[in-house]
Amino acid sequence: MTELNRRNTTILLLILWSITPLIWQLYTSFCSPEALISPFENIAKRWTLDNYRQVFQADPPFWRYLVNSSLVGIYTTFITLLISIPAAYSLVKLPRRIANVSKLVLTSVALFPYVLLFLALLEFARSLNLGNNLLALSIPYSGLSLPLAILLISSAIKDLPADLEEAAKIDGLNLWQRFRWILVPLIAPACASTAIIVFLFSWNEYPIALTWISKDELLTLPVAIARLAGSSVYSVPYGAYAAATVIGSIPLIIIMIIFQKQIVSGLTQGAVKG
């Protein structure tokens, strides 16, 4: 095999490895119950839309979870950016030694497996009556996203020439005006990357949503899906589940395609600067 062929084969394998499970879900979601249990045999009535019909006619309808997840995602992204941009700015302005220590702390906090926090967070929710509230759910989400968000945005601010802000001072811009007219427009790309990564995190988060939300109509997508799974491990009519996962994946696939550059640069920055 030539080197080129070997490379192309590897790429093909990579693509297959990445999307076969997804394709299989897609395929399953259109299968009739008979087709489902014998995928490799010839069956007269193979294709159906029943699975999707079932998902949308459920109570509450499945799109409800998409809306819930989107709402939490938007709240979380907004709160995280609102807090992390000023924090990142002050991190850059702090004396170097303090800034380095803070960065180390933030990095180790960002690495922390947050699953372990669910119980204490649940206690918060109970004592402050924050359960079953999507806006409240975005508070722990923002807290969990903050370390990474601050690191990403502060590295973007650090990359800006210091002259620019000084020129703005000489121009008479106060701190708020410098944020509004100079800093935020210039770090917009980093903010966009951060926003998308935070949004993805909050969209996908499971253990905290599981413990904070119990009302059916407020469930986020991952919890709703897991509930389906929990109903029975060996149940055969899997088509409806597949349809649910397909619907749950589509918004993310669209986000990935639109924002691929920001996602890649955000993750990359996180690794290089972190």
Binding site: S18, P21, W24, A229, T245, S249, I255, Q260, I263, V264
Partner: peptide, 24 residues
């Protein structure tokens, strides 16, 4: 595009794909 395709598994909710794998 290959980068995007290979990142898809990472971007999807774990519970969604765990359910998929359970079926597989």
């Amino acid at each position: 595009s290959i980068r995007v395709i290979s990142l898809l598994p990472w971007a999807l909710p774990t519970t969604v794909m765990a359910l998929g794998w359970r079926w597989i």
